[in-house]
């Protein structure tokens, strides 16, 4: 464990807490893409298949349970909570996210470390996570006003993977000098997809203006 990875995990956890706070406090999920949240449930379930079979550390196990639990809770809130589900606007959540599953799965069948169920699904989860934010970004571009909590949520969600890239640089140069192309490239693609969001987010923060993404 290094500082970059700990900061990344904490930023990731914080982004989820910000989202849960927004939904629980405002009893509204306006501006949030249910599709991105559903993709994240699939990402965590396929990423943490070894939750019960492989013990890495207490921290690792606790965080996996927290990520799976909170992502389920968010989808439950948006689908079934009597008040919150009324605020979900499916007309603006238009991205065809199921079209992301097959290409990621096929790519994982072609490009992986070992051809085992665990490793192919783990690799699938890395590819899927890289593109899971797309429905949310598309929704933000179409929504007129982005509330602060939603903007902060997306910012921290993007920042966490950027911190992981620093963690991989640190591990490669200062620890074991082993190339791990699959997580590296997936993580870089994931972080790159946030590039324009980061630009407009920081610009709006500097100019003390409402965040607005160009359509």
């Amino acid at each position: 464990m290094n500082l970059f990875r700990l900061a990344g995990d904490m930023t990731h956890l914080f982004s989820i807490i910000v989202l849960l706070l927004k939904i629980h406090a405002t009893k509204s999920c306006s501006g949030i893409s249910l599709k991105t949240q559903e993709l994240y449930v699939i990402v965590f379930l396929t990423r943490y298949l070894d939750l019960f079979t492989r013990f890495v550390s207490l921290y690792n196990t606790v965080m996996k349970i927290v990520f799976i639990g909170t992502s389920f809770a968010i989808v439950w809130y948006m689908r079934y909570h009597k008040v919150v589900k009324q605020t979900y606007n499916k007309d603006e959540d238009t991205f065809k996210h199921y079209f992301l599953l097959l290409p990621c799965f096929v790519l994982a069948l072609l490009l992986h470390n070992e051809f085992t169920t665990m490793d192919v699904l783990w690799t699938f989860s890395l590819y899927l996570e890289a593109v899971a934010i797309l429905p949310q970004l598309v929704l933000l571009q179409q929504s007129r006003n982005i509330d602060n909590l939603t903007g902060n949520y997306v910012f921290f969600l993007g920042a966490y993977r950027g911190l992981y890239v620093l963690n991989w640089i640190y591990r490669y140069f200062l620890q074991d000098h082993r190339a791990r192309w699959i997580p590296w490239i997936s993580g870089l693609v994931q972080t790159a997809l946030y590039a324009d969001f980061f630009y407009y987010y920081i610009l709006s923060w500097k100019k003390h203006e409402k965040l607005k993404l160009p359509a």
Partner: peptide, 10 residues
């Protein structure tokens, strides 16, 4: 090996 040890990450 390669795959295993990166699985210590979340």
């Amino acid at each position: 090996d390669n795959a295993k040890d990166l699985k210590d990450e979340l």
